[in-house]
Design a protein around this nucleic acid. Structure first.
Ligand SMILES: [Zn+2]
Ligand SMILES: [Zn+2]
Ligand SMILES: [Zn+2]
Ligand SMILES: [Zn+2]
Lengths: 156, 156
DNA sequence: CGTTAAGTGTTATGTTATAGCGGTATTATA
DNA sequence: TATAATACCGCTATAACATAACACTTAACG
C-alpha cells in the first residue's frame, strides 16, 4: 500500500507564495482580504472557526462582518487552498493545493490538532465500499475522523 | 473482504421494541420523551435536524424547548440508538445498536438519504492509516462521506 | 472612457447548540 | 413508608455558526 503523508508544517511565506502563484495561473484574484484570511489560517497552524478569524481581524484593528470572512474562505476552498472540516466547523490550510487529492483528516479530540493524511489505501477502500452500497463518490474524498494524536496519547 | 450492509428499513415497531429491551438490560430509562424522540427519528427514515424534531413535536401539540430534545438525542446517542451526523448537523437512527461497530456513513448530496454501511475493510484501512500518522482511533469509527445514491445517479 | 462583472461593506436574520436554574419524578436506602 | 439522593425535564436566555439581500467600490475589458 502506498502511503504518503503531508504534514502541516509548510512555512507561511512559502504557502503564501504558492497560493499567489496558483491564483495567478488560474486568473483568480488573490485580493488583500483573501490573502490576509489565508495568512491567518496558515499562521494558526491548526483549524480555526470563522469567528476566530473574525477575532484576529479585530486584533489587527480590522472589522469585517461574518459574510466577508465566509466569502473569502469559500474562495480559498474553491481553489483548494483551505479545507473546511465540516464536523468541526473549522477551516484549515491545505498542504498540497493544486494537486487533487483524497485522503483522511485526523483530528485530535484533545488538542484539536488536525493532520491531512494522504492515503490511497483509505481512498480506495472508501470508493470500493461506497460502490457496494450503490453510492458514487467524488474523486476527492476527505473524511474526518477523531482520535488522539501521538502527543496526547503520550500525555495519557 | 467481509462486507455487511444494514439498510435503514427496520420497521418502527421492531426498532422501538429493540430500543426498549436494550435500555431495560442496561438499567437505562427509556422515558416517554426519549421514546417519542426515538420514534420520530425512526419514522423519518432519514437524518433529521434537532429543530426538525422540535417542529414534529409542535405538530403533535407538544412544545419542548431545544435543550429537551438535545438531551434526549444525547441519551439515545450514548446508548448507540442514534448517530449524530456531525457534517450534516443531523441525527439518524442506528440500524444495529447494542453491537459496537465501525463503518461508514454514505450521505447523498442530492436527496439527503443516508446509509450506514458496516465495512470492516474501511474500518481497518482507517485504523492502519491513522496509526501511520501517529493517531490512535477509537474502536468505533464512523466517518461520513458525501456522494450520490443509486437513485440520484440514475436520475442524472 | 463606458460597460460589465467581481469583490467587499453592511445590516439583518436564520440556524444550530448549550448554560444554568428550579421543579418533578424515580430510585435507593433505612 | 419516610427520607435522601439522583435523574429527568421545563424553561429562559444566550452562545456559536452561517447566510440573504442590497448598496457601493474596484477591476477587467472592449
Ligand atoms: Zn488538502
Ligand atoms: Zn492531541
Ligand atoms: Zn450504527
Ligand atoms: Zn440520492
Amino acid at each position: 500500500m502506498h502511503t504518503d503523508s503531508v504534514h502541516g508544517h509548510t512555512d507561511p511565506a512559502t504557502a503564501l507564495a504558492r497560493a499567489e502563484a496558483l491564483c495567478r495561473e488560474r486568473g483568480a484574484r488573490f485580493t488583500p482580504l483573501r490573502r490576509r484570511v489565508f495568512e491567518l489560517v496558515v499562521e494558526a497552524g491548526q483549524p480555526l472557526t470563522a469567528y476566530e478569524l473574525l477575532a484576529r481581524f479585530a486584533e489587527d484593528g480590522g472589522n469585517p462582518a461574518p459574510p466577508t470572512v465566509y466569502r473569502a474562505l469559500e474562495f480559498l476552498q474553491a481553489h483548494g487552498l483551505v479545507h473546511r472540516l465540516a464536523s468541526q466547523n473549522r477551516w484549515v490550510v491545505c498542504d498540497h493545493p493544486s494537486d487533487p487529492h483524497g485522503g483522511l483528516f485526523l483530528v485530535c479530540r484533545t488538542c484539536g490538532r488536525a493532520v491531512e493524511w494522504a492515503d490511497e489505501g483509505v481512498a480506495q477502500a472508501l470508493h470500493t465500499s461506497a460502490r457496494a452500497a450503490g453510492f458514487q463518490l467524488p474523486v476527492e474524498v476527505l473524511p474526518e475522523v477523531e482520535g488522539l494524536c501521538g502527543d496526547c496519547v503520550d500525555a495519557h
